[in-house]
Write a protein that binds this DNA or RNA. Sequence first.
DNA 1: ATTATAATACTTGTATACAAGTAGACTTGA
DNA 2: TCAAGTCTACTTGTATACAAGTATTATAAT
Lengths: 243, 243
Amino acid sequence: MAEQKEFLYPVKWLSKASAGDRVTYELRMRIISGMIESGTVLSENKLAADFAVSRSPIREALKTLASEKIIRLERMGATVVGLTEKEYAEIYDVRILIETFVFERLASMESTELVMELSKILEMMKIAIKYQDADEFSYQDVLFHETIIRAINHSYILMIWDNLKPVMESLILLSMRSRFKEKYEDFTRILNNHQLYIEAIETKNRDLMVRSLHQNFDDVQEKVEDLWRSQMRLLKGVEQQND
Amino acid sequence: MAEQKEFLYPVKWLSKASAGDRVTYELRMRIISGMIESGTVLSENKLAADFAVSRSPIREALKTLASEKIIRLERMGATVVGLTEKEYAEIYDVRILIETFVFERLASMESTELVMELSKILEMMKIAIKYQDADEFSYQDVLFHETIIRAINHSYILMIWDNLKPVMESLILLSMRSRFKEKYEDFTRILNNHQLYIEAIETKNRDLMVRSLHQNFDDVQEKVEDLWRSQMRLLKGVEQQND
DNA sequence: ATTATAATACTTGTATACAAGTAGACTTGA
DNA sequence: TCAAGTCTACTTGTATACAAGTATTATAAT
């Protein structure tokens, strides 16, 4: 019934992915972008038909998305929860929470190697900007934060990140794409924030850490507002996926 | 091959559960109790045979346990990670992290209803002790903390809890069972800690909150050491599940 | 004996089939 | 008109089949 549009999630990132993963990533993007409206009830069979796969990969995807709290698995159908401003704020809370924790740990650790790696990623981000590659920029941005989190080698903090990451990634992707078109000047500021981040880790200056952390997150907050606007735009222009 | 032993997870808690859930809960208990050794490679087919179900519920279970970080899904077989002292400490970290956050939120909220509910649970815990029902006591203990966390109505903090809870529950179950046999006097102290917890929430006294929080967690820490000892005991006495 | 090749016994991911259960529409009887 | 029942079209969870891929072992050639 619903005609298959081009994918929202970068297809080249899914080259080696299973059908289950492909559905997971794409479905998540469609939900977070607002292309699939909040409140929609998803049917396994219908999704299987839409994505031209069997129910097995669909079920896998739904379970994953439910654990990320963007859908709710009910006795009959999966209801799309989506992200309202409340959820944006909550994601922000959790990011602050875990990155603060990570920073505390980093303060008492050798971090030369990490700083090196982060600098490399920052260079990559600059190149991505130069070539106006929003997706690549997003990838490096997410990688930047993941690299910091992984550095403390804490499997249960990583567990939290693993659950938050996909949603974050989708948000950042959508936000960066629209910013590349409309607010290109933002990127100098984003780069500065990340540079500050690195310096904070390098000097183990806790004050700078906290400051750069919040500065970065305030920026994220802005991203989120952007996204919200572009979602609204999308919602008006895009034909519904479900009926 | 491996003969099916009695279940470690309370069977009556699984009365309405699917085969997939049953496998998930039981497998988790066997891993956390040390009955399935760390490093063991689990085979979907073998597990399916052992639990007398098909691969579908087994895959579901393995995915869940992987997201909880107690197994690692690799290209060939799932490797049991289990919980070393490092992981115990990490779980402790995350509990402190989220419960501190929750407490901060609670301080600026109406909490009469919550206090009521917690008091009820505490009464239940007392009854469970009176009738020496370790499983029931564990259930109420977990419920106590979950009730506090749910009170702030924060879906991404709840997401963290959802991921941590099953492991916590297993740990508490195992710990309480051994304590009922060996360290019965502990329970007065546990009850006192919980009472303090409630008072902290009731009076919105942040100092008391922090104190009772840590006191409670220090107790958990002790539980964990207990568990460690009983695991070691188990490991010696119990025939391996895999070969 | 050692290396290359082939056979085997696994593995994962996906499709498909089916049983059991549930919601909503459609009678039917009062 | 409404209550009770029945039918139909869904739903979920599980079993099973199969293709494609990957380790491991066996076999053959040097």
